[in-house]
Amino acid sequence: MNAIMPNVMAMKGEFIQATWETIYMTLMSAIVSAVLGLLVGVLLVVTQPGGILEDKLTYSVVDKLVNLLRSIPFIILLAVISPLTKFLVGTTVGTTASLVPLIFGIFPFYARQVQNALLDVDHGVIEAAESMGSSPMAIIFRIYLREGLADIIRVSIVTIISLIGLTTMAGAIGSGGLGDVAINIGYARFENDITFMAMIIILILVFAVQLIGDWIVRRVEHN
């Protein structure tokens, strides 16, 4: 091991630390983005033309905002958003500071995915619920979010995996985590085994997310 990966073996502690940082950034930004994304996704579905709380103005404003945010390349967003990050966190470096761009980078994407998942909920079931006297809130919680749960989990897996990717980009500009190690140590010092090891750990994280997600989907789906 020492022969194949001399630099990695010398940096065991740093790798463990970086892995935790990646998990921390992914989890924290995922939680906040989940809340924001679900809110916006639901808002888009209920206010769309023909939706249960149709509101053309709200729909079109939110829809355009989501598109706008999704159009900004993440690497640019990282830079553009730094004043806001500084204002909110007090600094622009470190794992916590990276949460701000990560959230803005991912939640519009997630909102769109949630919207699509909810649009797949059978319209007939919504109509049935309305005919049974369900309120809009009841339809959102008891029908949309419940009937769409399996699909929401599916898009959540995709989103978390994208998010892991984004954390590495944030890492490249100094937020810590496996991206930071791979680029600022492995790549910068030509220590290829470090870069390679960082990639292996990221792949393991991605597979773990995929496996756990698939398992949950199987539990909640009853087709």
Binding site: D122, G124, V125, E127, A128, E130, S131, M132, G133, S134, S135, I143, R146, E147, L149, A150, V220, H222, N223
Partner: peptide, 21 residues
């Protein structure tokens, strides 16, 4: 209106059951 709707039930061609329940 929602209260009144409870007294007028509906069944459909495609049943419209909730598959998650």
């Amino acid at each position: 209106l929602r209260q009144a709707r409870k007294k007028v039930s509906m069944i459909f061609q495609h049943f419209n059951l909730m598959k998650s329940r």
